[in-house]
Design a protein around this nucleic acid. Sequence first.
DNA 1: GGGTGTGTTCAACATATCTGAACGCATGCG
DNA 2: CGCATGCGTTCAGATATGTTGAACACACCC
Lengths: 279, 279
Amino acid sequence: MDRSLRMTEPSRNRVGTTEKSLTILEHLQQEDGAGVTEVATTLDMSKSTVHSHLTTLVDCGYVTHHDKQYHVSTKLLRLGGRLRDQSPLYQAARIEMKSLAAETDGVVRLYLKEGDDATMIAQEGYHPGIRERHLGERTPLTESIAGPVMLAEHGRSDGEYSDDGEEADDAGNPDDDGTVTHSEIDEAVRDRFDRIHRRGYAVETGATGSDRTFAGALSRRDGTVMGALTVTVPGDAASPLSAGDRLLEAVERVELSLTSWYDSHATFSPKHSWHVHSN
Amino acid sequence: MDRSLRMTEPSRNRVGTTEKSLTILEHLQQEDGAGVTEVATTLDMSKSTVHSHLTTLVDCGYVTHHDKQYHVSTKLLRLGGRLRDQSPLYQAARIEMKSLAAETDGVVRLYLKEGDDATMIAQEGYHPGIRERHLGERTPLTESIAGPVMLAEHGRSDGEYSDDGEEADDAGNPDDDGTVTHSEIDEAVRDRFDRIHRRGYAVETGATGSDRTFAGALSRRDGTVMGALTVTVPGDAASPLSAGDRLLEAVERVELSLTSWYDSHATFSPKHSWHVHSN
DNA sequence: GGGTGTGTTCAACATATCTGAACGCATGCG
DNA sequence: CGCATGCGTTCAGATATGTTGAACACACCC
């Protein structure tokens, strides 16, 4: 817990050059490719500097260079993919994700809890009407359905829902009666969490369509939350209610496989610290 | 000493610092996380240098730092994921991938042709017995079944399969018909390509298990190959033969959707150059 | 032809990176 | 306990290194 110094930057960056290269890389990403001068003007750098960084990124394989246009390459996908594929969470979940998607004909997503955010690291199934979610997309816990269910599950361990300074909930309450006043807010939140805990999952009806999303937290044996599993079924699904029950089965099986994995890899190497993801 | 090897600069790297940072990043990736001294010793750098670069990477969000261990974060997956999700190839294929996987109960994979390599950018379905393939994995065209089918399909356009090896770039010569020069050495190869062309897809039986993989190339209207679609069904599948036919349907539909996308985006912006991927 | 608009190169300078040693801070072991 | 060893971290100086702006090559379009 480092106290935030009054320096604008939390910690004094050491290597400004790398920062510059990564800024250029992210700019290429956001703009879906760009040329040298475009990057130079928008990022306020000299053309030659941008050129140097871009050639370096090309040589390292992170950027492709064709027809005066620089694009990010698939190397980022490759590096990020290996990170995901090797994670025990993904390894434990993919079997259940497949069968869950097949049986409910919905879209199944796997989230990894990272601090106060949830990152979608895998997806199975597809339906044109359902809202897209990008691979690796990172959303605050307060904005996704996967969020509340994680916070609620987190509260299960210590008997109190997490209140680490972040406002756990205020927006997107599906069934909130508008007359909530100052003191009643906490109670409403607690009520919601209790309800989630009792039912084991959260439900959210899609804003636009009539699809429903069921979310369940994936927690370790000690109660800490590792991620969440989600299935959203379209409105014209055969049996939307059974999807929720089916989700709970999948969650339970994933947790089982996960804990058994940890038992077999009980060697206390500080590597593979798949437990403290909190960046 | 050996001055014959004179600075065969691929292209003179400009920014060595960035190169160093990226090397550290890739080392973290390969080792599944590491500490400062481990990186410093294996990469032959001073501890303080490694520390500087790591803090920079942490500040930029590419690396997480917990318990004396540095790991790559999900930002790489996020950046690479957006690259994939925005590609018209993926957008055109995902619907067919889902239905193809559902109907054949196999593993469907989407490959993007990049020069002489094929990169797997999407996957749908899962079967425990089938050999894993990592997201973003890049394999030479000669090693995967997706490779020959791409080379064969490529030959369909100009009547000659490409064997230039290096310069795969520049699709600017549609009628670059050098006469069929070479001897019968390549006849066996040509025979294989012809067979692939006739059948429309390639089949490969898994080395270990009894699963079969069907591959079909995804090509543009001008005949150039953009990628490949692949379905592998386990040996105990209900009707393995129909999977091949079903694959061909999917390929055709994806190509249709792809060309219509290009027509609607016919504006000739040099961006979105999803045609010359040849890094 | 000369006008833009690219991307690229180069030498000189000054900036920012690298270094090695010293510092906390744990853990382990005699 | 106290020394020893391992880790990550900090700091000031020296040196390598990135940055800069101008000049180059090239393509395009009035």
